[in-house]
Amino acid sequence: MKISLGRFVPGNSLFHKADPRTKIIWTVAMMVLVLMCRNYVEYAVAAVFVIASFVASKVSFKFILQSLKPILVLLIFTSLFNFLFYRGENVAFMMWSKPIYWESIAMSIKTVVRVVLLIISASLLTYTSSAVSITDGLESLMRPLGVIKVPVHEIAMMMSIALRFIPTFADETDKIIKAQAARGAEFDSRNVIKKVKSYIPVLIPLFIAAFKSAEDMSTAMESRCYRGGKGRTRFKVLRFSSADIVITVATVLFAASIIVLHIFIK
């Protein structure tokens, strides 16, 4: 069974080629810059940059819509609240004999744009990088924390083993559910308590399998001379490429323009 981890869609775009560290820093930078935006000009610049990035990532628009969907309801609600309870000075029109102000419309638009831009930026990271490469990127970025005794290597090893086992356990769960269903277990009760209870015959074998795997795994690692991060060399190294330079330069220019606009437009 092929299970896609996270939402990674393989590809060959500028973003796919970039180093995960660049993409992680890029995402954080985008968050900060989008949240800094205050006026329409800044929003317009940010929107253009995010859309340009989106085009450069060659991620299908369908996928972006998918990640926006769950947030959409939230957006509609906040806008509605804004309309109903915000008191401004310039009345735009009346709705159900309640005044709707220009200010609240403007605010709603800004909120929507802001959230949409944030989500698109974050989606670009997860759609163009595998979970494994994000882990590698995080490990590399967190390495300086080793100085203050954060067990960076151990955390990264744990994350990587967890990622490695997700598909294995998904397969295992499927088999256990079938084995129990075959001897009469039913999982489709409408009663919540009954439903939770019906999964006990699945959870127990799954936990036992997980413990067994963990035990086997630690023996296998020990047998292959694993003794923690000390003195270890790395097979996989992250390397920056021209894609990273392009993204970095573009982002620096974008950041500069936002900051300049921030200072000059009051």
Binding site: K212, D216, M217, A220, G231, T233
Partner: peptide, 23 residues
């Protein structure tokens, strides 16, 4: 239960990483 890394070649390298073989 004995393949540790997320790709084949990295798994083959796992032991070598542990004993500190140069890249």
């Amino acid at each position: 239960n004995q393949i540790i890394a997320t790709s084949v070649e990295e798994d083959v390298a796992f032991g070598l990483e542990n004993i500190g073989v140069p890249r």
